[in-house]
Measured scan of single mutants.
Amino acid sequence: KYKEAKESFQRFLENHEKMTSTTRYKKAEQMFGEMEVWNAISERDRLEIYEDVL
């Protein structure tokens, strides 16, 4: 289930129109921090996936 959450988060970042190569992690956290997809995984994993996607 956790792996699915990580994959969902990656797809979310890859497909969200507001995500560009210039979007900083903290800005994304402000935009999406309340969303379930954002909070479903640990911050360490979130940051790792974020850096992989951008």
Results as ranks from 00 to 15, higher is better:
Phe12Leu: 10
Gln30His: 12
Thr23Phe: 12
Glu29Asn: 00
Glu29Val: 02
Glu43Gln: 09
Arg11Tyr: 09
Ala40Ile: 02
Glu43Phe: 01
Met19Ser: 01
Tyr50Trp: 13
Ile41Ser: 05
Glu36Gly: 04
Glu34Trp: 04
Ser42Val: 06
Glu36Ser: 10
Arg11Ile: 07
Glu14Phe: 09
Glu17Leu: 10
Glu36Tyr: 02
Glu4Met: 08
Asn39Glu: 05
Lys26Ile: 12
Ser21Met: 12
Glu29Trp: 00
Thr20Arg: 08
Phe12Tyr: 10
Lys6Trp: 01
Arg46Asn: 11
Asp52Phe: 05
Met35Gln: 11
Ser8Gly: 08
Val37Ile: 13
Ile49Lys: 03
Phe9Pro: 10
Ser21Gly: 13
Val53Asn: 15
Val37Trp: 15
Ser8Tyr: 05
Thr20Ser: 10
Lys27Leu: 12
Phe32Tyr: 12
Thr23Ala: 06
Gly33Thr: 02
Gly33Asn: 14
Lys27Tyr: 11
Gln30Ile: 07
Glu43Met: 02
Asn39Lys: 13
Phe32Ala: 11
Lys26Gln: 14
Arg24Gln: 11
Asn39Met: 01
Arg46Trp: 00
Val37Pro: 12
Trp38Ile: 03
Trp38Cys: 11
His16Ser: 13
Gln30Ser: 10
Ile49Val: 11
Arg24Tyr: 10
Asn39Cys: 03
Tyr2Leu: 08
Phe12Trp: 02
Ser8Lys: 11
Lys18Leu: 14
Ser42Glu: 14
Arg11Glu: 12
Asp45Pro: 01
Lys27Pro: 01
Glu4Pro: 00
Lys6Gln: 07
Arg44Trp: 07
Leu13Phe: 02
Thr20Ile: 09
Glu7Thr: 08
Arg11Asn: 15
Lys6Arg: 13
Lys1Leu: 02
Thr22Asp: 14
Glu36Trp: 01
Ile49Gln: 04
Ser42Asn: 08
Arg11Ala: 07
Phe12His: 09
His16Thr: 10
Glu4Cys: 03
Arg46Gly: 05
Trp38Asp: 07
Lys27His: 13
Ser8Ala: 15
Ala28Gly: 03
Lys27Asp: 15
Glu7Phe: 07
Tyr50Val: 04
Glu51Val: 04
Lys27Val: 15
Phe32Gly: 07
Glu4Gln: 12
Gly33Ser: 11
Glu43Cys: 06
Arg44Asp: 09
Thr23Asn: 01
Lys27Ala: 15
Thr20Ala: 04
Lys27Gln: 10
Leu13Cys: 04
Lys3Trp: 00
His16Arg: 04
Thr20Glu: 08
Glu4Gly: 07
Glu4Ala: 08
Ala28Met: 07
Ser21Cys: 12
Glu43Val: 04
Leu13Ser: 04
Lys26Thr: 15
Glu14Val: 14
His16Ile: 00
Ser8Asn: 10
Phe9Leu: 10
His16Asp: 10
Ala28Asp: 06
Met35Thr: 13
Arg46Val: 00
Ala40Asp: 04
Asp45Glu: 05
Asp45Leu: 00
Thr20Trp: 07
Met31Gln: 10
Arg46Tyr: 01
Ala40Val: 04
Tyr50Gly: 08
Leu47Asn: 09
Lys1Trp: 00
Glu36Gln: 09
Glu29Tyr: 00
Glu29Leu: 03
Leu47Glu: 11
Glu29Cys: 07
Thr22Asn: 11
Glu4Arg: 08
Ser42Met: 09
Asp52Gln: 15
Met31Pro: 00
Asp45Thr: 07
Ser42Phe: 03
Ser8His: 12
Glu36Asp: 13
Glu4His: 11
Glu43Lys: 02
Trp38His: 00
Lys3Glu: 04
Ala28His: 01
Glu14Ala: 13
Ala5Ser: 12
Gly33Phe: 00
Glu14Pro: 03
Ser8Phe: 05
Tyr25Trp: 01
Ala40Met: 10
Leu13His: 09
Lys3Thr: 10
Lys27Phe: 06
Lys27Asn: 10
Gln10Ala: 14
Trp38Ala: 07
Glu43Pro: 08
Phe9Val: 02
Ala40Glu: 09
Glu14Ser: 11
Phe12Glu: 08
Phe12Lys: 03
Ile41Arg: 07
Glu34Lys: 14
Lys6Asp: 04
Met35Cys: 10
Ala40Asn: 12
Met19Gln: 06
Asn39Trp: 00
Ala5Val: 04
Glu29Lys: 04
Arg44Thr: 15
Arg24Lys: 14
Ala28Trp: 00
Val37Asp: 15
Arg46Thr: 00
Ser42Lys: 11
Glu4Val: 07
Glu43Tyr: 00
Ile41Tyr: 00
Arg46Lys: 04
Ser8Glu: 14
Met35Trp: 01
Arg11His: 10
Lys18His: 12
Asp52Pro: 01
Ser42Pro: 06
Met35Glu: 14
Thr22Gly: 13
Arg24Asn: 15
Glu29Thr: 03
Thr22Met: 11
Lys6Phe: 03
Ala5Gly: 07
Asp45Val: 00
Leu47Trp: 09
Lys6His: 02
Gly33Pro: 02
Lys26Tyr: 13
Phe12Val: 04
Glu7Ala: 12
Phe9Arg: 03
Ala28Arg: 01
Val53Lys: 08
Tyr50Met: 09
Ser8Arg: 15
Tyr25Leu: 02
Lys3Gln: 03
Glu14Lys: 07
Val53His: 01
Glu4Asn: 09
Arg24Leu: 15
Arg46Ser: 03
Glu48Ser: 13
Tyr2Pro: 03
Tyr25Phe: 05
Ala5Pro: 05
Asp45Asn: 05
Ile41Gln: 06
Phe32Arg: 05
Arg24Cys: 15
Glu17Asp: 12
Glu7Asn: 09
Arg11Pro: 03
Arg44Glu: 14
Ala40Gly: 11
Arg24Pro: 15
Lys27Ser: 14
Arg46Glu: 06
Tyr2Asp: 11
Lys6Glu: 04
Phe12Asp: 09
Phe12Ile: 03
Glu29Gly: 01
Tyr2Cys: 01
Ile41Cys: 06
Tyr2His: 00
Leu13Ala: 08
Glu29Ile: 00
Glu29Ala: 05
Arg24Ala: 15
Met31Gly: 05
Arg11Val: 11
Phe9Ser: 07
Tyr50Pro: 10
Asp52Glu: 15
Glu7Arg: 10
Lys26Ser: 15
Glu48Lys: 14
Phe12Met: 11
Ser8Trp: 02
Gly33Ile: 00
Glu34Met: 11
Ile49Thr: 14
Glu36Ile: 01
Met31Phe: 00
Gln10Asp: 00
Glu36Thr: 10
Glu51Ser: 13
Phe32Thr: 07
Lys6Thr: 03
Glu14Gln: 15
Phe32Pro: 05
Asp45Phe: 00
Thr20Lys: 08
Leu54Ser: 03
Glu4Trp: 03
Leu47Asp: 00
Glu4Phe: 13
Leu13Lys: 05
Val37Glu: 14
Trp38Leu: 05
Gln30Lys: 11
Lys1Glu: 01
Lys27Gly: 07
Asn39Ile: 00
Ala5His: 09
Lys1His: 15
Gln30Thr: 11
Glu51Lys: 14
Glu36Pro: 12
Ile49Ala: 06
Asp52Leu: 10
Leu13Val: 09
Glu48Phe: 02
Arg44Asn: 14
Ala40Ser: 12
Gln10Phe: 11
Lys6Ser: 04
Ile41Asp: 09
Glu7Pro: 00
Lys18Tyr: 09
Glu29His: 00
Trp38Thr: 09
Val53Glu: 07
Lys27Ile: 05
Arg11Leu: 10
Lys26His: 11
Gly33Glu: 05
Gly33His: 03
Gly33Cys: 01
Gly33Gln: 06
Asp52Trp: 04
Glu17Ala: 10
Phe32Val: 04
Arg24His: 15
Gln10Glu: 03
Glu43Ser: 04
Met19Arg: 05
Arg46Met: 00
